[in-house]
Design a protein around this nucleic acid. Structure first.
Lengths: 149, 149
DNA sequence: GCATAAAGTTAAGCTCGCTTAACTAAAAAG
DNA sequence: CTTTTTAGTTAAGCGAGCTTAACTTTATGC
């Protein structure tokens, strides 16, 4: 065990390691699915935020409506997304993941977190408890933050 | 504080929140730099692993040597990377970040972790201690893992 | 009701990343 | 010393994402 560091330092060190490894699994998985990163990111957004309209996609990713429309069209073709008319506003669409799309996201998470599970399996019970406690603290704090997604 | 969860659950919840927020800051920052994600990723790799040759880039990102060469060329043009001849093998090149490139990465990290700093600032001293301890445990464990970067 | 604004779509055209193929130069193998 | 392998570059061409512009359809303001 290394010497305790100030919190900003320990946070940053951890985030470096974590991000680097997670990203690897992430991009690798995206490649195996045949989807591009932008397409994949849209599925992720739908997973995270639930059903939404086309404009929310374009705002979230800072692209034009046209671009969003084209990307979504591909995801509809590949049956990862369902695009229905919004009953409350017939100009708008309601986009949501199909079961197909959900399965893919789920598989992606598994891939992404595999190394993490391995990491945890090497910890002692006492260490695991501490980790759970800390992560719960962080998760709660994150949920209470201004959530400008 | 929510009820304690099993470790796999608490890990996963945390990672979802964390990844989603970090990625937002990340892609946003990449856009402001004018660099593409592939270009940005190469800078990240050099930051993480230090100087390396062209082939290591192409292997790491699973692209052809030609593609790596072209991407690197752009980063050399924009003065984020220095490309020198390897004195031990004159076929090979040694790629490394310029001060310029390092500054950019550093700024990216700040952007990426801003929300995290904000999050931590809301914690009580006692909570912070627990977080530091847990992150140190995780970081140490990660460093001891098979490191196939 | 009519003009204006808003949500999406479609098409043309650009840039960028990537691949394959052909090439140069240096190291390793024999 | 010659052959083969390895590291990297360059060029041609493809596909994907993105933008702008023109358009359709539905909602909103006055």
């Amino acid at each position: 065990m290394t010497k305790p560091l100030p919190i900003s330092q320990s946070l940053r060190t951890w985030m470096d390691v974590f991000m680097h490894r997670s990203m690897r699994g992430w991009t690798h998985f995206a490649k195996t699915t045949g989807l591009s990163m932008p397409q994949f990111s849209i599925l992720m957004q739908l997973h995270h935020k639930g059903p939404c309209g086309m404009s929310e996609i374009s705002e979230r990713f800072d692209i034009s409506n046209a671009a969003a429309s084209q990307l979504v069209e591909k995801l509809v073709q590949s049956e990862h997304i369902e695009r229905a008319e919004d009953p409350n506003d017939r100009r708008a669409k309601v986009l949501q993941l199909t079961p197909n799309g959900k399965d893919l996201i789920e598989a992606g998470f598994k891939e992404r977190y595999k190394w993490m599970d391995e990491l945890v399996s090497n910890l002692k019970a006492e260490e695991r408890e501490k980790v759970v406690e800390a992560l719960t603290i962080l998760t709660d704090a994150a949920k209470n933050m201004s959530d400008k997604n």
